[in-house]
Each structure stands twice: as structure tokens, then as C-alpha cells.
Amino acid sequence: MAGTEVKYARNTDYVFRKIVDEMILVPIVQDTADMDCVYALNEIGSAVWGQLEQPRSQMDLKQAILQEYDAEPAVIELDLDTFLQEMIEIGAIQEVK
């Protein structure tokens, strides 16, 4: 339904770092994650994180990634779904209205 579509946003308590060729998220505060961990992102994950400079819907993200990568839409959709679920689970990405 228009106007109620779920959008996704970065949790600003995670910092994205590119170290050598690895893309990682480093948590800053205690209540967002296990502070003894850093989270390595793959290429698609990094691209999604980049897209989330502004809150975006899953559809927006899918289209943006499809424009950037030459891959089957179904594969991208699955990767995106998995990534969002994992990031929501650790609190790095939040759902916003």
C-alpha cells in the first residue's frame, strides 16, 4: 500500500570501513550488537549498505543493485533478502516507515 511501504535504514551506531579489500561493519555501542565482533560484508552487502545512505524500500534496493550488477533478478532478490534479514538481526539495519 502506497505510503506504508517498509523502508530500510542504516543504524548509525555501525560504522562502515573498507580495510584493504574487505568491507566491514564495526559496531559502536553496546546495545546494538556483540561488541566483540566485526561484520564482514560481501560485494552485494557493501553495495546495499551504500544505497542506504537514505532509507530505501526493498524494491528500490533490488532495482539499484540490478542496475549495478549483471545477475539474475531472482538471485539478487535472494541475496538481498538474506542480507537484510541478517543485518536486521544484528541491528545494523532498521525498518522505518
Binding site: 579489500d21 566485526v38 561484520y39 560484508l41
Partner: peptide, 28 residues
């Protein structure tokens, strides 16, 4: 400290993998 995205590797292992492409090049 471990890397949760790949929970079976330690930070040291992750760092070694990270630096493999650099060979002996300097990196701060």
C-alpha cells in the same frame, strides 16, 4: 574477537586473509 559474518574464523585468520592480496606491501 571473531567475525560473526563468518563465525568459524578468528580475527587473526580474517586479518591474514585480508592481507593476502597485499603480499609484503606496507599497510597502516
Amino acid at each position: 574477537m571473531n567475525c560473526l559474518a563468518e563465525p568459524d574464523i578468528t580475527l587473526d585468520e580474517w586479518a591474514n586473509r585480508m592481507f593476502a592480496p597485499l603480499h609484503k606491501a606496507r599497510y597502516p
